[in-house]
Design a protein around this nucleic acid. Structure first.
Lengths: 220, 220
DNA sequence: TTTTAATTTTAGTCTTGTCTAAATTTATTT
DNA sequence: AAATAAATTTAGACAAGACTAAAATTAAAA
């Protein structure tokens, strides 16, 4: 059994692995909000348990074993988020911190039964894909809103980072999952976009557009 | 916010307080499965936080503050047990260890919403009373089976200690909550009882009879 | 009422995970 | 290519909780 802390490190490494293979000490320190020295200590312990590969000054890499642990935590996190939103009626911006705790409950049976209870969801309330028991992630053909050319229509498919403030901001603009939108303008000055949404026209910054994932509208 | 460990100590002290006011170091050590020396260390810390009263060599006592924390943990534990049994289909003997983890999730909102979702249950799957948000316990007029005279009829209302083995044993004999029974015989030799239950006649030991709580059958 | 036994506390150590400050290595400039 | 800056690691400490062994206190027995 792994400690909550170990699980959090592995999860963070998995998340940062998306930006390139090796994860640096400082990136991990930033993500976990601890000092770099603490990270160095911890990655040595994780390497001793063969959950990561670690080479001095070269950053870390998940082993197959470590990846499985990380993906399992993500599976639990996302299934719990579905429960909180679908069954308990929480808003999509309220569930992250609670799921952050629930993801560390150790019981395979619990998560399997919860998965049954929820009818085997494939995506969480933020559009995040839910891994299966073997750690396979369902594919979503979603891309950042910032990649769309002016004039194109799309449907909100999720967010990259489920930051509370961002989620509340999007909620306010009616940009929930499934919402239709159209890109009206692109300002080269600051890379912001003007969108048409069911609730009106809105300008969103480059950063928001990078974090908002969309998919092409269904071809009827 | 209290650590899980602090919460477990307070819960144990609350539980042991039923057997008399002051809880001894050794009783706590036994209950928590740690050495007495560790208990001494810990109770000093809890006393410093004004969660308990502690006098050297005299054992400990919960303060009002400590009692509220303890009862709140019990509230969470029991509400989660209802969820596990009623919604996820776990058996009554399978839920203790999982609820032991879930009770430490910090979110008042979560437990309140869960309570709504479950329609405000008053008792958990083992017949344990569920405290309300203010820490008040619903009264149950239940007494140990061992207190009944020969010939009396009763209905199973719960168990005192939700020990896994005991629960499985009772389940096997059909002695679940709500089951009717009648005391046929009392052997003074070992204080065991012979019961008539819907599934047949069974002999139960004194220890089991002490732990099985019953209430009088409804007067029609 | 001593003596013995049981309980409790103190003292010192260990593990996990964190920190700061200093030393080392790698990366970036000039 | 040498000098500076940034990133990383080492060294030494600390807090939470646990342990063992020894000392102190309380309870029980002779």
């Amino acid at each position: 059994m792994h400690s909550q802390n170990e699980e959090n490190y592995l999860k963070a490494i998995f998340k940062l692995s998306a930006e390139g293979p090796a994860v640096s000490t400082s990136a991990l320190a930033r993500e976990l909000d601890v000092q770099a020295a603490s990270v160095t200590d911890m990655v040595k312990k994780l390497a001793a348990k063969e959950l990561i590969q670690y080479e001095k000054y070269q950053g870390v890499l998940l082993t197959a074993k470590g990846r499985l642990v990380a993906v399992n935590i993500i599976r639990k996190h996302r299934i719990w988020e579905v429960f909180l939103v679908d069954k308990l009626g929480f808003g999509w911006s309220e569930v992250h911190d609670i799921a952050e705790q629930l993801e560390h409950i150790h019981s395979e049976q619990l998560i399997d039964r919860l998965d049954d209870f929820l009818d085997h969801p494939s995506f969480d309330p933020h559009g995040g894909p839910i891994p299966d028991r073997e750690g396979r992630l369902p594919q979503r053909q979603a891309e950042p809103l910032s990649a769309l050319p002016v004039g194109s229509k799309a449907i909100v498919a999720g967010v990259k980072d489920d930051d509370r403030e961002l989620l509340e901001y999007l909620e306010q603009k009616g940009l929930l999952i499934g919402a239709r939108l159209r890109v009206l303008e692109h300002l080269t000055f600051d890379d912001s976009l003007v969108l048409e949404t069911p609730s009106g026209k809105w300008s969103v910054s480059r950063k928001v557009a990078d974090n908002l994932l969309v998919r092409p509208p269904a071809v009827e």
